[in-house]
Simulated scan of single mutants.
Amino acid sequence: MATTKRSTNRPPVEALVAGDRDLMRALMKDALQEVLEAEMTELLGASPNERTETRSGYRAGYYGRGLVTRIGKLELRVPRDRHGEFSTALFERYARSEKALVAALAEMYVQGVSTRKVKAITEELCGHSFSASAISAINKGLDATLAKFAHRPLEEAYPYLIVDARYEKVRESGVIRSQAVLIAIGINWEGHRQVLAVELANRESQSSWKEFLLGLKKRGLSGVEFVASDDHAGLKKAIGEVLPEAAWQRCYVHFLRNALDYLPRKADDDCLQELRWMYDRRDLQEAQRDLAAWITKWQGKYPKLVDWVEGNIAETLTFYRLPRAHHKHLKSTNMLERLNEEIKRRTRIVRIFPNEAACLRLVRALCSETHETWLEDSRYLNMALLAEQKKEFLRAAA
């Protein structure tokens, strides 16, 4: 029986859906409505019209509630129970970052920045245009919530710390400048990731990074044993000053990118691929043995690269002192890079922020959303492995 080949010109389902905003809104609305119904069922211990011995109450109709999203305003039906006990975190958590995005766009509109485009976007998102007083009301509630998130005390130890920066364009006194967004992620002894800090700086420098890290310590940051970052000179010095007790890991991904500067354009691809394999070895001894073989193989062909690698690669091998199961998560800053990509996906809608407050508001809202998701996820790392490794080290030292 002959089979019919699928047309290669047909767009994937995802592309069809993404291109139809009405369909996207309908799908999103259905999904969120199901979440609300499931939360009510969990509270009452029974589905609608279901008789169970575990039922703890009864439904009492619905009330309407609008939710602003990037694909338009959704009108949802929120279930009620007879005793008024039902509440949902759905709106607060999901809407926080959406409100920050809308506020940034609306503020641009009010200030006359790209008015035609911004007005169209905000009206599509919210169904109406904005006044300065409306924006002020949105920001007032957001800023209070985000300030608590940004300045909360850090009351537990974070043995692992990952820090990085990205840049956003901000308008200041009519001039567009790039602002550094400094972000820190910590992993606690329960193995959960948390966004610890999000701050703006005029640029990445030793002083700005030092102030950022000192701010973390003032809020209670303690117990840091290992820090991963890129090789920014100012950041590296700041880590050494503020967290001298912590081992430093230079992100191996950034290291391999830097290696391209020491290779001719038409270099042998096998050279860098073999260097990358050093980071998949079982332990430091195995990596050093293979590194020696790599140096011998490529010294004659690429002496500039080999000399640079010999002088710098040790900074990228610090992760080998950690439990092997932790290597892939901490030999780079990829964990934070993924968060930065999500931030970029959302902030590029704004393109140029009208002021620093609008920029920080949106980025913190996005980070807060991610932070809460991580807290509910299963543990990211098994930190018992690190605790056992430390015990073995102490026994050996004794």
Rank of each mutant, 00 (worst) to 15 (best):
K237A: 15
K237L: 04
I239H: 05
I239K: 02
I239D: 01
G240R: 03
E241R: 03
E241K: 02
L243M: 07
L243H: 06
P244E: 03
C251V: 04
F255D: 14
R257D: 03
D261V: 00
P264H: 00
P264C: 01
R265F: 02
K266H: 11
D268Q: 04
D268F: 02
C271W: 04
Q273S: 14
E274K: 15
W277C: 15
W277P: 02
Y279N: 08
D280P: 07
R282Q: 09
D283A: 13
D283T: 03
E286Y: 09
A287G: 11
R289N: 13
R289G: 12
L291S: 07
L291E: 06
I295L: 11
T296P: 02
K297D: 07
W298P: 12
Q299R: 11
Q299W: 12
Q299L: 05
Y302I: 09
P303F: 12
K304R: 03
V306C: 05
W308I: 04
E310H: 02
N312F: 03
I313Y: 14
A314L: 06
E315A: 14
L317W: 14
T318A: 15
F319K: 05
F319C: 01
Y320C: 03
R321P: 00
P323W: 05
R324E: 10
R324P: 01
K328D: 02
S332Y: 05
S332F: 08
S332N: 06
N334D: 09
N334Y: 11
M335E: 11
E337Q: 10
L339V: 13
L339M: 05
E341R: 13
E342T: 10
E342R: 13
I343M: 06
R345K: 06
R346G: 00
R348P: 01
I352V: 15
I352S: 00
I352T: 14
I352E: 06
P354H: 03
N355P: 01
N355H: 09
E356Y: 11
L360Q: 10
L360K: 00
L360H: 04
R361I: 06
L362N: 03
L362A: 01
R364H: 02
L366M: 09
S368P: 02
S368M: 13
E369A: 08
T370W: 02
